[in-house]
Amino acid sequence: MHLPYADSARLIVGTWWLVVLVVSTTYCGNLVAFLTFPKIDIPITTIDELLAHRDTVTWSAVKGSYFEQQIKDSPEPKYRELYQGMMKDDIDQKIMLAEVEKGKHVYFDWRTKLHYYMKKQYLVTDRCDLALGSEELFNEKIAMIMAQDTPYLVLINDE
């Protein structure tokens, strides 16, 4: 192979080979990463998307829960529409989670409880096929029980 004799030409050829090496290495690395860890496409992450897929997906919440009452009494049309399309019958938890894993059902509950379901499924199957929606519907209300005469009651209530 004939290499240039001038230093300027050698610098150009060396730079070109460095660029080719970086570009090909980056491409190969991205290809391996894509094939090894494919990006999971979650089709439903908001209430609007759920209502748009109402013909293919069912949804439910705990019967008589705070969430059910809030969307039932909500003045916002999409929440009322969500309540009207919601399954009102109690579903067995295992059947419900299996339907959620298949992508045929959406379950509404407090974020803490949903994290518990995700952890439980991961411990059983060693993988997690569940995902949380990106839309926050209501602030999660948390309470603590303590003695009435505790000196920390004011501090905890402020926080």
Rank of each mutant, 00 (worst) to 15 (best):
R54H: 14
L82I: 03
I47F: 09
L50T: 02
R10C: 14
D89S: 11
S60H: 03
W17D: 10
R54G: 09
A52D: 11
M118Y: 00
D55G: 06
T36N: 03
F37T: 05
Y66W: 10
Q121T: 12
V32R: 11
D55P: 00
T15R: 09
D90S: 12
H105M: 15
K63R: 10
C128N: 06
T56A: 13
S24E: 10
L97V: 15
M86I: 04
C128Y: 00
I42F: 11
D126H: 09
L50W: 03
K119Y: 12
T45A: 05
H105L: 13
P77C: 02
N139V: 14
I44T: 04
V62A: 05
E136H: 02
T46R: 01
L51K: 06
Q69N: 05
T112R: 10
F34P: 00
L82R: 02
A98V: 07
A9E: 15
H105W: 10
Y27F: 13
D129A: 05
T45C: 08
P75S: 12
T26N: 13
N139F: 07
V62K: 04
E76L: 12
D109L: 09
Y66V: 04
L11D: 14
V19R: 07
K102L: 14
P77S: 09
A143D: 05
R127P: 00
N139R: 14
L97M: 15
Q93V: 14
H53D: 09
L18G: 15
H105I: 06
D129Y: 10
C28L: 15
P75Q: 14
D73M: 05
V100N: 03
M144L: 11
K94Y: 13
L137N: 01
L51W: 09
E49C: 02
L114I: 06
D41K: 15
Y79K: 08
Y66F: 11
F34M: 10
S74W: 12
P38M: 10
R111S: 01
E76D: 07
Y122F: 08
S74P: 01
K39C: 09
I95V: 09
S65G: 10
I71A: 01
L132G: 06
K94G: 07
S65N: 06
A98I: 03
Q69S: 05
K94S: 11
M96L: 15
A33H: 13
T25Y: 13
D90W: 01
T125Q: 09
G103I: 08
L114H: 01
V23G: 02
R10K: 15
G133L: 08
F108H: 00
A143K: 09
S65K: 03
L35V: 04
C28A: 14
E68H: 02
V124K: 08
F108N: 00
T26V: 15
M144N: 04
Q93W: 05
R80T: 04
